[in-house]
Write a protein that binds this DNA or RNA. Structure first.
Length: 210
DNA sequence: AAATTGATGGGCT
DNA sequence: GCCCATCAATTTC
């Protein structure tokens, strides 16, 4: 499958959020290629109080106002990074949060990165490990927004504001199309809690939360 | 099985 | 100073 181009991202944000399900997120690095099928997304739009661009443009959210196909990486809870696909024309701050992946390529590299993150993370997690050889460990590689950025080796400093159209992080067209989509409310918010902007592949075991 | 909580730092008001 | 688009252990039913 080929890398998606500007036309895919330059569309209604909630439409893109739904169309991303079944597509494959890829990161090419010197250590190897890691990739996974997008199984869960959330849309953040203009007028939505939970959207980071709700108030005004700042240094943190500047990438959200970039052209469609820009990557927005932000730090959350002092520790984790989350990634968004920027949609809508330049100057409009809307994006799609990628919340979970079904790993397809570079499984061992993903596990290495997750295990390295445990070693250098919170004291209480230093002895944690993830074993991709077990069903549970495999599921645990990318089933959350903070986990998948670790597994794919995505860095806020290096990758925020990069281009999905020309960069080393990109998205391939749909590799999975035969599924039912569930539409529901978003996770972890205190604002806009009732907006049904979360989408996931029904029955997929890699979705972060039912 | 579900709810609670500790870790912990940058960005905004 | 206050607010989090999380993760995983712990506590509680």
């Amino acid at each position: 499958m080929e890398r998606l181009g500007a036309a895919f991202y330059n569309n209604d944000t909630l439409t893109v959020a739904q169309q991303l399900l079944g597509c494959e997120l890829v990161h090419e690095t010197p250590e190897g290629l890691t990739a996974g099928i997008i199984v869960e997304t959330e849309g953040y739009v203009t007028g939505d109080p939970a959207c980071h661009a709700y108030r005004r443009q700042t240094t943190r959210n500047a990438a959200m106002f970039g052209p469609a196909g820009t990557l927005y990486v932000y730090q959350i809870y002092n520790h984790y990074n989350c990634i968004n696909v920027v949609t809508s024309p330049e100057g409009v701050g809307e994006a799609v949060l990628i919340r979970a992946l079904e790993p397809t390529e570079g499984i061992d590299l993903m596990a290495d990165r997750r295990n390295e993150a445990f070693k250098t993370g919170f004291e209480r997690y230093r002895n944690n490990t993830v074993d991709p050889g077990t069903k549970k460990g495999f599921r645990n590689l990318c089933n959350g927004p903070g986990k998948l950025t670790i597994a794919l080796g995505i860095s806020r400093q290096r990758d925020n504001n990069s281009s999905l159209i020309t960069g080393t992080i990109y998205i391939r067209g749909p590799v999975q199309t035969d599924f039912d989509m569930v539409t529901t409310t978003r996770i972890g918010l205190t604002q806009g809690v009732d907006l049904p902007y979360r989408y996931y592949i029904n029955g997929n075991p890699f979705v972060s939360k039912k």
